[in-house]
Write a protein that binds this DNA or RNA. Structure first.
Lengths: 205, 205, 205, 205
DNA sequence: TATGAATGAGAATTCATTCAT
DNA sequence: TATGAATGAATTCTCATTCAT
């Protein structure tokens, strides 16, 4: 009886693929692109080297893919948290809440995007600037909406957005470096909100 | 009695050493730690590989040393610019002016600190967090002084300082990526000042 | 009593086996032994990798087997074409006709024997020298028969046979490299016959 | 005192380079391109792996280079031997004498060209057909000269040249496979000359 | 019979570092 | 001091082969 490439088999393969990708994210986040070897990744997945190349074309492609996927995931999470809010203050609160949540419970996501990938490989450059650009664009949109509705003072929305992107990332990196991130999360979120409201010149309307 | 190089010899040696270090900074800044090879560095210095190892113990040590030195240089430059000012607004202006000046005219300094070194090698971690820490501490001191004198509202100075560090770096990175950084510098500085004043809750007194 | 596949089953198996072998010949002829992978072969046969190893022990054994079989096929074809002729000139004509026919319509046969297998694997050496030996022996027999009957001048039949083997192969390789082998075939055959008659010192009797 | 990249040093380097190339030719000739590993080559040269890459860019480039150089050497040797002769018979004698000499005393040359490189790597194809082409062209020129001066009968010179190229190579391969090539060389040369004169329809004028 | 996921030995190549001159 | 030839550990990736299903 011929072997059936049934949905069961395929599902198993997909599961393994996902498992390996998660292991790879962890390894890349922890060691950075260069220090992370294929051996590290397969060891973390408990498979043989050949298995890596059965599932992925090569180290570089996988890394760029993980980076892109992770960036998209993070941006989506923040965007979706902000979407239902119309008030600038509430948007900021929701977005930062989502951001910090991920940072605290999935620190590998932040490490991959902010640390693991820097200077990794030329082919990552595009992904990397695309991520910074989209992150900035996201804040810029929020800021310009708020400007139009008079919630914040008139300003160069692009520049403020860059400031937001940099400031929040730095605060979050400091947060997850802290011995007890979860305990600090609530305070950090509040202070980030205050920082953002002030920096954007929130008028309270 | 141990052999002592005459002062003339020592000076010559120091000169060559300095030349090589400057070449190394350029190469590291341009390619990043991993992609930069010793061959690249000696080629840029127009010496042989062996000469590199006469002046420096190894690639890693040199890099960490350059990083530390560069970080110190940048921090000193900003600190010194702010020192004579007592008003928060003026301090901000002077500090950012100095920062942007360096970014525009010595972009390698910024690239080395913000890009070339991330994820380079474990032994850099200490230097790196030390630099972020001192940068943040610098802003924190400015902020807390201003708080004490009532120039800005009461806040968690540490957190605002982290925000400053991240925000200004991000804006500066965007600036030097711009095709014509010099042309944008003045506007960028002004907007950074405004951003900082707002974010710190500057009351104008 | 050991399990015996029914004749129907065995036939089906043989068919599949044959199909795979033909695909393998094509792939080996096209890419050469080393560049041809098992994946290439199973892709050309539209089966899975495991199936390959059900029918054949390994790549090397299959290749040697295919080489031997192909060599035997080619030698038989030429021999059979020459068998009914007794005159040297007619024999040459018939043999070369058959040889060129195969070269033009089954180029994979020639490519496998003359190109794909050279330097393939140590275990092929025996097959390879056996083929060259039998090819030479075939011509030698024809030549020595003709010598005995005074159709050609006295000579070292072995050496002339080697010359025949090399010369005809080279001409045929050039022929199938030509953009339009079929169009050139007739002329090539005639010229090969003339070459052979002259080289053997055909006296016309 | 600075190290002098004197002619002595450079000469030593050139010598080593040449030594390594000769070792590489032997290894490639014996095992063929694929079976020959870099480890084999450096072992034959008694140096470390890194040394190989200090002298040569990579395996493929070296092989193609060696092939081209060897082909050129062989062609030149045969051409130069034939150059001073004007009579077809004498040319053949001189050329084959040179060819067999090389085959017997430098069998690696012949093995590299006729065996070691077949199916080696796509980038060799050009070199390989170029060699076969130039070898054939060399014989063709000799043949057409002789035709013009009426020394041999009228014929398709190109086709005869292909026959020569193939026939002589085959005979020479058989010769060097023989247990005592040197002992057979003289007879082989004579018989090759006779074969060639007959095949070209030498009229004796 | 048939499948294809999984394996791991082995190959090429890079590059920081050493050391005789 | 200065040189650059030489080294070899370490890394990525390929592909023939196995085996549970």
């Amino acid at each position: 009886m011929p072997y059936r490439s049934s949905s069961k088999t395929r599902q198993k393969k997909d599961t393994k693929r996902t498992t390996m990708m998660q292991a790879a994210i962890r390894v890349f986040a922890e060691k950075g692109y260069h220090a992370a070897t294929i051996r590290d990744i397969v060891a973390a997945s408990d498979v043989a080297i050949g298995t890596f190349y059965f599932y992925f074309p090569d180290k570089e492609t996988l890394f760029v893919h993980l980076y892109d996927e992770t960036a998209e995931f993070l941006l989506q999470a923040i965007r979706q948290a902000m979407a239902p809010r119309s008030n600038f203050s509430r948007q900021l609160q929701a977005g930062l809440q989502a951001y910090v949540n991920i940072a605290v419970y999935e620190p590998a996501v932040i490490q991959l995007l902010l640390v693991g990938g820097i200077g990794a490989t030329p082919s990552l450059n595009k992904s990397q600037s695309s991520y910074r650009e989209r992150l900035t664009a996201m804040w810029q949109q929020v800021i310009e909406s708020a400007m139009e509705t008079g919630q914040i003072i008139s300003q160069n929305g692009r520049r403020t957005a860059e400031g937001f992107a940099g400031a929040f990332d730095e605060i979050i990196l400091n947060l997850i470096t802290h011995p007890n991130p979860e305990g600090q999360a609530a305070a950090a979120i509040n202070e980030m909100i205050q920082f953002g409201l002030r920096a954007a010149g929130f008028t309270g309307n």
